[in-house]
């Protein structure tokens, strides 16, 4: 249970392959922070707002960054994003959207809802590692949030 309270990166991704590749990409960039992967929108919200299986979570604990896939079972990524950005306690957490194509109209909508950045999930894994590096969000993780 302590691990749950120490989560620094929350990945919301229903595809385990993609999730694993993301983890590997972080590792390749030497980002070895505590990572939690949840597989649908509902679970993500439960974790963030301490409901369901995460009800006992330390209320002060929250991830330093969220990677959010848009196409999710139960509650889709845009709805999750909307919830995060409409609550003061979660609003300040940087959210990076994971998307299959940069041409997606979803991206525009994500920005309207207050997303901080996005990563196109490339087929070429090396490009994904590059993207993680380019985005430089490890910098965000190194610096403690207030």
């Amino acid at each position: 249970m302590d691990e749950i309270n120490q989560v620094e990166i929350l990945i919301v991704e229903d595809n385990p392959s993609d999730a694993e590749m993301a983890l590997r990409a972080f590792k390749k960039n030497n980002l070895t922070n505590k990572i939690l992967v949840v597989e649908d929108g509902e679970e993500a919200l439960d974790y963030l707002f301490k409901k369901g299986q995460y009800a006992t979570k330390n209320k002060d604990s929250r991830p330093k960054i969220i990677l959010l896939d848009l196409k999710l079972p139960k509650i889709n990524g845009l709805e999750v994003l909307k919830e995060i950005k409409s609550h003061p306690e979660t609003k300040i957490i940087p959210v990076i959207v994971l998307t299959s194509s940069k041409e997606e109209s979803d991206i525009i909508e994500s920005y309207q809802l207050g997303v901080n950045s996005y990563i196109v999930k490339p087929v070429d894994f090396e490009k994904f590692v590059e993207a993680v590096r380019d985005l430089g969000f490890y910098w965000l993780l190194l610096n403690q949030l207030p």
Binding site: S17, M21, R24, E104, K121, V123, D124, F125
Partner: peptide, 18 residues
């Protein structure tokens, strides 16, 4: 297509890489 068909491609490529 954009989401679901590409995901396996990513996996094939990604895990080949691994």
């Amino acid at each position: 297509v954009s989401h679901d068909l590409r995901a396996p491609m990513r996996a094939i490529n990604g895990f080949s890489n691994f």
